[in-house]
């Protein structure tokens, strides 16, 4: 799949997320509170800045898309109501809404299951990583 970012990405992300990334004041609170910070290559405040700049190439290739936990700590703490988690979700959707864009192909799932894994986790992962 071509990954590089397209001219329409900015409009799509704004429409999908309902967020205006340009009101971010780069305080870094989102990154400072993010429990997945050390697992990410592009940290939440940088992610937001790149969305505001329309620089989608690095975002579409980032590990951040798959490590964000949707824990909403950044959403809770952001003083400008930017909702970084919603922007990460929107960029992830740019990828997985394309044909062949699934991150967690269903055939990989059975090997990752065990007796105790709750249904909720399986449905959540399928919905977050696939379309």
């Amino acid at each position: 799949m071509p990954i590089g970012g397209e001219a329409t990405d900015f409009l799509d992300v704004e429409r999908i997320s309902g967020v205006n990334a340009s009101v971010c004041m780069h305080c870094g609170k989102c990154s400072a509170s993010c429990p997945a910070f050390h697992k990410m290559d592009i940290h939440p405040h940088r992610f937001v800045a790149l969305v505001a700049d329309g620089d989608f190439g690095p975002l579409l290739r980032s590990v951040t898309l798959w490590r964000c936990l949707s824990c909403f700590t950044c959403v809770e703490r952001c003083p400008r109501a930017v909702k970084p988690a919603n922007l990460i979700e929107a960029v992830r959707l740019l990828l997985i809404r394309k044909p062949g864009g699934n991150h967690l192909p269903p055939q990989l799932v059975p090997a990752r299951l065990d007796e105790e894994l709750p249904q909720q986790a399986i449905v959540a992962a399928m919905r977050k990583y696939n379309k």
Partner: peptide, 18 residues
């Protein structure tokens, strides 16, 4: 703080750290 959530299915080590 998050327990690791659904990321346990994609990267168990990451979830375990949480």
């Amino acid at each position: 703080r998050c327990c690791g959530g659904y990321v346990a299915l994609d990267d168990r080590e990451s979830a375990q750290a949480m």
